Computed example of a mutant assay.
Amino acid sequence: MGAVKGNQTLRSHSLRAISQLIKDDADFKKRRLPVNDLRYFNRWLARTASLGLIGAGFESIRIVRNINNSSGRERVLHVTSLLSILSQGGISLVQALGASFGRLSANFMVGGVVTGMLLVATITYIIVNISINKLKKGAYEIWLSETPWGVGKNRAEWSTKSGLLESARENQQVVSEAIAKLETIVKQPTISHEVIEKVTAYPQYTHKETLGIKLNIQVPEQATGLPIRLKSNLETLDESAKIARSENGYFVDVSTKELPQYLSINLEYQLGDEQGKNHAYWFQHAVKQSASYSSIIDTDKQKKIDASITSDWLVL
């Protein structure tokens, strides 16, 4: 490959063009160019670019899933990330095809223009993903940033009252609210689901019929035994659900012929009769993606989930 880098003729002509010149031009043939080095270079580039193309394909699938489960600024960043990874994949595709069929010159496939485009796409991808990671805070990070000891813009403030008793009461209220939020995080459940289908095989095709969906609600040890209720955008949830206890929570089988594109759930631990005492959680996930997922922290997303709810409360 070093001979390719140091030979202007090899760099500026495609393998197919050089092979044709050697065949048709006797003077060109006498130059005895190290064509085998160009062949080795093309094979190496074809393999490397193919691996890059496969990697870009898998990453694109992952990003598309993130786009489907995000909104607002986060969604814009994921779309930008997808465009950058598709650019990288497009460049890898051109390199793989050009090197495999010997149609493109080394100067074009790894030259300044293509390398520059690949560099810009890669840098964009890195910057965007750093921005996404900064945007995404864990539940504990958000909780800490909102306490009086945090540095978030929504952090709670200590009392500014001059009276000692009045100030102490307000500060006690601040601490109590912070502890209640922390308790909500500690007792956070996780949910996974599985679509229930009836598959019938025929000689020419396979028929799939949706029968319902199975929810697996897992609660941490600290929340075991607490009464739970939930509602969802599954309209038949409160009418057709079959509930069974599991070792770490509940299984809920819901019979329905039609499923939404995204499963939305609002779940609460019932801790008392007074409004606001329940620990509430919101979940949303693509129905076709079977995975375990945690509750959504973003308040804007929580409001959208509330707006999509169609069922009444189901007490487990």
Rank of each mutant, 00 (worst) to 15 (best):
A3Y: 11
K5C: 04
I18L: 09
K23Y: 06
A26E: 13
F28D: 03
R31Y: 03
F41D: 00
R47A: 15
S50M: 00
L53A: 15
L53I: 10
G55M: 03
A56G: 15
S60T: 11
S71E: 04
L82F: 05
S84I: 03
L86P: 02
Q88G: 15
G90E: 00
A96H: 05
L97E: 08
G98F: 04
G98P: 01
S100M: 06
R103G: 14
S105A: 06
A106V: 10
G111L: 09
T124E: 05
I132Y: 01
W149N: 10
G152N: 00
T160L: 07
L165W: 10
L165P: 04
E170H: 11
Q172M: 15
Q173C: 11
E177I: 12
E177N: 14
K181R: 09
L182Q: 02
T184G: 14
V186G: 07
K198T: 03
A201Y: 09
N216D: 07
I217N: 01
T224W: 14
I228H: 01
I228C: 00
L234P: 06
T236V: 13
L237N: 04
A244R: 13
S246W: 02
F251T: 07
F251L: 11
L267N: 02
Q270N: 12
K288N: 15
S292D: 14
S295K: 00
T299Y: 12
T299Q: 15
Q302Y: 02
K303M: 11
V315C: 08
V315L: 08
